[in-house]
Amino acid sequence: MSQNQQKLVGKLALETEFGPFLGDTRIRLLEAIDTHGSISQAAKAVPLSYKAAWDAVDAMNNLADEALVVRSTGGRHGGGTLLTDYGRKIIALYRAVEQEYQGALDRLAGHMAEISEGDVRQFQSLLRRLSVRTSARNQFVGKIVGLRDGGVDFEVRIALDESTELVAIITRESSENLELALGKEICALVKASSLMLLTEGAGRITARNQLWGEISHIHDGPVNAEVTLTLPGGKTLTAVVTHGSIESLELVPGKKACAFFKASSVILAATA
């Protein structure tokens, strides 16, 4: 292929420091939800597995300032999945930026002959260093609303929305490294295996974080299952529990349950 025939084609992705937030696949999923009003039909249209579609929706809702997708109940057809006005605005903004992005790639392709091989390798190395991922299933962004100095450690209260707070316990050194302050935006990570569930009528527990919500879906696996709770403000939490626990607690979609975990199980991260 001659130099003047080369064309750069890329996929736009919006990344957080813990992995992807928006990309082509997730945007197409949102568009399909808006078209079909059903997560199962939208997943088939993308295509994605039903579980992967729900995982993507939960991740986007947890990291966004407002819910992009909501579940509706009742009605003639028994409810469905709806895209919010905020979700439509995100799609429109993404598509607009995508168009500008492709235009920039087209202009770059016109100057490829002027770019040295060394410059390309250096740029690739920079991208790899900036790419950070985490295995934590539950990832949230919130603002610090409380800091208590315990001498050796710090108690940090984080508001995820108007109705949901998390509490983390970290060392003084970590607090200084993260430069924590009231009002600062912070990322909170909680592994699914750190969460335990209980239902109404259970005994008292001492865990600092006790978040009540409604079970929105259960994904069965060969040994364990993922149980996702939708909290009052629309955020979701996912716990990994055994099939025995699901049976003993009689966990089913629509049932009220509490996800509880220690403050020491919350990992905090701040942007540079």
Results as ranks from 00 to 15, higher is better:
Gly233Met: 09
Leu229Tyr: 02
Ile218Cys: 00
Leu249Pro: 05
His243Thr: 00
Val227Lys: 03
Lys256Ala: 13
Ala239Ile: 07
Val241Ala: 12
Leu231Tyr: 05
Cys258Glu: 09
Thr242Asp: 10
Glu247Leu: 12
Val241Asn: 07
Leu237Met: 10
Thr230Asn: 04
Lys256Asp: 07
Ile218Ala: 02
Thr230Leu: 05
Glu247His: 11
Ile218Ser: 03
Ser248Asn: 12
Val241His: 06
His219Arg: 01
Gly244Val: 02
Lys255Ser: 12
Val240Tyr: 00
Thr228Phe: 01
Leu229Trp: 06
Pro253Ala: 09
Leu249Asp: 09
Leu249Tyr: 06
Val241Gln: 06
Lys235Asp: 01
Val252Gln: 14
Ser248Lys: 12
Glu250Ala: 15
Ser245Trp: 03
Lys256Pro: 01
Lys255Pro: 00
Ser248Cys: 00
Gly221Cys: 13
Val223Asp: 02
Ala225Tyr: 00
Ala225Pro: 01
His243Asp: 04
Asn224Ile: 04
Leu251Val: 08
Val252Tyr: 15
Gly234Ile: 06
Cys258Gln: 07
Thr228Ala: 06
Leu237Arg: 08
Ile218Val: 14
Leu251Ile: 03
Thr236Met: 08
Leu251Gln: 11
Ser248Gln: 12
Val240Cys: 01
Leu251Arg: 06
Val241Arg: 04
Gly234Ser: 03
Lys255Gln: 14
Val227Gly: 05
Leu231Ile: 09
Pro222Trp: 04
Leu249Gln: 08
Pro232His: 01
Pro253Gly: 10
Glu250Lys: 14
Glu226Arg: 04
Ser216Tyr: 03
Thr228Pro: 01
Ser216Pro: 00
Val223Trp: 00
Val252Asn: 10
Leu231Gln: 10
Thr228Trp: 05
Ser248Gly: 00
Thr230Trp: 01
Asp220Tyr: 15
Thr228Val: 14
Thr242Gln: 06
Gly254Gln: 05
Leu249Ser: 04
Pro232Val: 05
Lys255His: 05
Thr238His: 04
Ser216Phe: 04
Thr236Gly: 11
Thr242Val: 06
His217Lys: 07
Leu237Ala: 02
Ile246Cys: 06
Pro222Asp: 15
Ser245Ala: 15
Cys258Pro: 08
Gly234Tyr: 00
His217Asp: 10
Gly233Asp: 10
Ala239Arg: 01
Val227Glu: 01
Val252Ile: 13
His219Phe: 10
Gly221Lys: 13
Asn224Tyr: 11
Thr242Gly: 08
Thr230Arg: 15
Leu251Ser: 08
Pro232Cys: 02
Gly234Met: 02
His219Gln: 11
Pro232Met: 04
Glu250Leu: 05
Thr236Gln: 11
Asp220Ser: 14
Val252Ala: 15
Lys256Gln: 14
Gly244His: 13
Ile246Ala: 08
Ser216Asn: 12
Glu250Pro: 07
Gly244Ala: 07
Val252Glu: 12
Cys258Thr: 14
Asp220Asn: 13
Lys255Asn: 03
Lys256Met: 12
Lys256Gly: 04
Leu251Lys: 12
Pro253Gln: 10
Thr228Gln: 02
Thr230Gln: 14
Gly234Leu: 09
Glu247Asn: 13
Thr238Gly: 07
Ala257Lys: 00
Val227Ser: 07
Val252Lys: 15
Glu250Met: 09
Leu229Lys: 03
Val241Gly: 12
Cys258Ala: 14
Lys235Ile: 00
Glu247Ser: 15
Pro222Val: 10
Ser245Leu: 10
Thr228Asn: 07
Val227Pro: 02
Leu249Gly: 02
Thr230His: 09
Gly244Ser: 06
Asp220Thr: 06
Val223Arg: 10
Leu251Gly: 10
Cys258Leu: 13
Lys255Ala: 15
Lys256Thr: 14
Ser245Ile: 09
Pro232Gly: 03
